[in-house]
Design a protein around this nucleic acid. Structure first.
Lengths: 200, 200
DNA sequence: AGAACAATTGAACCACGATTCATTTCTTTG
DNA sequence: CAAAGAAATGAATCGTGGTTCAATTGTTCT
């Protein structure tokens, strides 16, 4: 016997794995999933293409993990703010505010997470996460009560409204939206979703 | 001189071209864009793969044309019904009704047109068409007046609401939705969009 | 009929990028 | 330090599916 994996070895391995994930996240945030080929991630992670396969079974799996982390974090943020809301209006308001502002702040990444064409395993994850948003908002709406329609439909509708209005704004081929434009949109969406939920 | 393209020749050529488009549409309606590879379309059109390149410059262009036809037709239908509406409520109502019912009736095709991952040229076309929907609904809302928020945001929101609520229903990997489910959804969406537009 | 040209065919070609794997380099332990 | 095993490397491989093209078949005209 002459070699055995040690504490440090494993810590290093974990650091490498995390480094590759971070690299992939950066590449995606810069150029979307389309640009996140194995070679590009390897360059960013400062390792070889082959090495990536020591830590991840394949490219799709790596992308799926990175997607799940990033999108999961966004979901947590929304869940946090929605949990504090005590009326349907507040739920609508905080959802729109957080969603739109965070998307605009991290435009390219938001586009990748929400809209870009992705490999199938990532798409499944995206649908899972979207169901997560619906669940979080739907549960909150149920808690505060007073909606005339099924909370799930209301929650989905809110997600749909906001998402659809971000399509052009997040388009990587167009210039950054002006702050004024964003203010108008946020205000309008809040008005729209509030009245939709039957609040004045 | 011994050969010149004649009336009949050209008519035949046009028929072939149309046949290939029809074949592509059928393949897409059956298995989505993913299944519409050149070989599959050729089989359905009863011609060789190579022949397709006599009539279309490449696969993406063929798919783009077929998409534009199918989605353009849907837009025309919506435009037709929305044109008859004379209140915001009626606009919301007819949009939801037509959109949802037609989507459910042609589930697989609707999924392909609205949600499936598609080659870039098709995606551009999809965005164009979506802007068409927004324009049609937005113009109608402007015509009847009385919305507190920009008509474009309202129109986009309606499209987003409806689209998002179709995601699960159109998923090809799940069973057909029950008629009752559809009724509930249509009713809820009409309520949601109506109140969103500030109508009781 | 046969010359002239267009259309069809389908197998070969090609582009692309993920994946593999023989080789080399690094770590640990006796 | 040497042996044993792990990890890293990156060029070669492979799979996939769109695209091409030489050969064949079909059509028109004199």
């Amino acid at each position: 016997m002459a070699y055995r994996a040690t504490q440090r070895t494993r810590a290093n391995a974990e650091a490498r794995r995390a480094g590759i994930e971070r690299a992939a996240r950066h590449v995606i945030a810069r150029g979307g999933f389309a640009s996140a080929n194995v070679a590009a991630v390897a360059v960013e992670a400062d390792c070889s293409a082959g090495s990536i396969y020591t830590y991840f079974s394949n490219r799709d799996e790596l992308l799926r993990l990175v997607f799940a982390q990033a999108a999961g974090h966004e979901l947590d943020v929304i869940a946090g703010t929605v949990a504090e809301a005590s009326t349907a209006s507040e739920i609508a308001e905080s959802t729109v505010e957080v969603f739109v502002r965070r998307a605009v702040a991290g435009r390219r990444l938001a586009h990748a997470l929400l809209l870009e064409e992705v490999p199938e395993p990532v798409q499944s994850e995206r649908l899972r996460l979207r169901r997560g948003y619906v669940a979080v908002i739907g549960t909150a709406l149920d808690r505060v009560g007073g909606t005339q329609i099924p909370a799930e439909v209301a929650a989905r509708s809110i997600v749909g409204c906001v998402g659809e209005n971000l399509v052009d704004i997040l388009d990587p081929t167009t210039a950054n939206p002006s702050p004024a434009e964003i203010e108008t949109l946020v205000k309008a969406l809040i008005t729209f979703t509030r009245s939709a939920l039957g609040e004045p």
